[in-house]
């Protein structure tokens, strides 16, 4: 019984890591530009396809595949900000949100048209194989441990970046008070562009981590529908909140999928979000300081 719970916990945390990474992308862009980027899930999907291409067609090793997908998506993210989002700066939020939904549709459409990508499902090879680790009575896939470890490493790297790097602190500063950032000579537009790049890169990483758990296909971006409540749960606008929220949703789903009747799994996440928001309307890590634009 305990072993089984541990097994479910690991599966949930591994899945939750991917939710967390997509949620993180939502939050980074929201904090910086007050825009909810509904294409975040599809950017994750596109990143996974770039990883797939590098791994299967180019035959690159796993680590190179990850770097390739992150880099390409970071460039695409920056390009989207520069070419699509920046021209509509100052338009009503609704307009901008509709545009991000449109970006998602376009990405999905393009992916289905690319030869070799299409609408089929693909398996992304990983070096983790089918190995398992036995802890107590639990049987835990090495893949899951790898996903958790790699997510932890990325989160640690991001923490150090935001805490110590000049650009990272400038991203925080721009998110907290955009006007003051302009006054300090921070190139706000360029910083926002880099935040889009960072979010897209994190999404690509999530897409590749999702690959051992699920297949790569053009609709995998709908995972954004789980990552969005994860961000809300954490308190939209909180980076630690996105990660905790993602993990909670992953764990809840994992246990609900096992213990409850079929169908409850997908609803469980939303039930938890509603329950938490009833108690804490601003989410677990909801900020009390209001932002100045």
């Amino acid at each position: 019984m305990l072993g089984q719970s541990l097994q479910l916990l690991f599966a949930g945390v591994a899945q939750g890591c991917v939710y967390a990474l997509v949620a993180l992308g939502f939050v980074l862009i929201y904090k910086a530009t007050e825009t909810v980027n509904f294409a975040q899930g599809d950017m994750m999907m596109l990143g996974a396809f770039f990883g797939l291409t590098a791994a299967t067609i180019l035959g690159w090793p796993y680590w190179a595949t990850i770097l390739f997908a992150i880099t390409v998506m970071a460039v695409i993210g920056m390009g989207l900000e520069r070419v699509v989002l920046r021209p509509v700066l100052g338009y009503p939020t609704f307009t901008v949100v509709m545009i991000t939904i449109g970006i998602g549709y376009v990405i999905r459409g393009i992916v289905t048209m690319v030869p070799g990508w299409g609408t089929e499902t693909h398996a992304l090879p990983t070096p983790f194989g089918n190995g398992v680790v036995r802890i107590g009575g639990a049987v835990i896939a090495v893949e899951q441990i790898a996903v958790i470890g790699m997510t932890a490493a990325l989160v640690a790297a991001l923490f150090l970046f935001f805490r110590f790097a000049k650009l990272g602190v400038a991203m925080q500063a721009t998110s907290q008070n955009q006007l003051a950032a302009y006054y300090m000579g921070i190139p706000v537009q360029r910083v926002n562009m880099m935040i889009w790049g960072l979010s897209a890169g994190v999404a690509a990483f999530g897409g590749i981590l999702l690959a051992p758990v699920a297949f790569v296909h053009s609709n995998m971006g709908f995972i954004g529908l789980k990552a969005f409540p994860a961000a809300v749960l954490g308190g939209f606008g909180s980076v630690p909140g996105a990660i905790v929220g993602g993990l909670i949703i992953g764990i809840v789903e994992s246990f609900a999928g096992f213990h409850l009747a079929e169908g409850f799994k997908d609803v469980a996440a939303y039930v938890v979000v509603l329950a938490v928001l009833l108690v804490r309307p601003s989410g677990i890590f909801g900020e009390t300081v209001s932002k100045k634009v």
Partner: peptide, 26 residues
């Protein structure tokens, strides 16, 4: 040419030191 804006406009969640570092961003 730098401005001290009306109403201070500090970065509320950054430490005092990081606020100062942002002053030296350029």
């Amino acid at each position: 040419l730098v401005q001290v804006p009306e109403g201070r406009e500090v970065f509320p969640l950054l430490s005092v030191e990081d606020n100062l570092r942002m002053g030296a961003y350029t």
